[in-house]
């Protein structure tokens, strides 16, 4: 049975099987390759997207459970062609190394800052415990996020 979902504001229909992980639908069917797939077990956070506004690891979301729901991927952050303030500050601080972890980190921090715009450094670190950066670029990443919190 096809699954109807709204991805980055657009109605989409997926024909994949009901237990297909959402990450595979996003990447292989709709070519939204921003979200990465690494561990497939909820540990690394590289596949994080927003489902109805909340961050989830899309490797563990079966397609059929997304019927009629709102999915946002990292591609939606610069929808008007202009990077979001979070993306801009990450660029200013030259945070990205290989970039594998980065889309997930942006999605987690985007929703975190919606709730906690003035968060402290320790809270930012706690918010990121589910995002593993194999290049270990945590220091600049947290510096950049803390700078954004100070600015807002």
């Amino acid at each position: 049975m096809p699954t109807n979902l709204v991805i980055n504001g657009e109605d989409r229909i997926s024909t994949r099987g009901s237990m297909t992980p959402l990450i595979d639908v996003l990447r292989d069917e709709f070519f939204l390759t921003g979200a990465k797939v690494a561990c497939r077990e909820g540990i690394c956070g590289a596949c994080t997207v927003h489902l109805d506004g909340r961050p989830v690891v899309s490797c563990l979301v079966p397609l059929a459970t997304v019927e009629g729901r709102d999915v946002r991927t990292v591609e939606s952050l610069a929808a008007a062609g202009e990077p979001s303030p979070l993306q801009q500050i990450m660029e200013e601080h030259d945070v990205v190394q290989c970039g594998m972890c980065f889309p997930g980190i942006l999605m987690v921090l985007t929703s975190f800052f919606q709730e906690r715009p003035h968060a402290e450094r320790d809270d930012i670190k706690a918010a990121l415990v589910g995002n593993i950066c194999r290049c270990t670029g945590y220091e600049r990443l947290v510096d950049a996020a803390a700078a954004l919190a100070r600015r807002s």
């Binding site: 540990i43 489902l51 961050p55 690891v57 563990l60 987690v108 589910g130």
Partner: peptide, 9 residues
């Protein structure tokens, strides 16, 4: 338990 994204699920 787990991490923030898994706690949402």
């Amino acid at each position: 338990a787990a991490n923030p994204a898994v706690r949402q699920m």
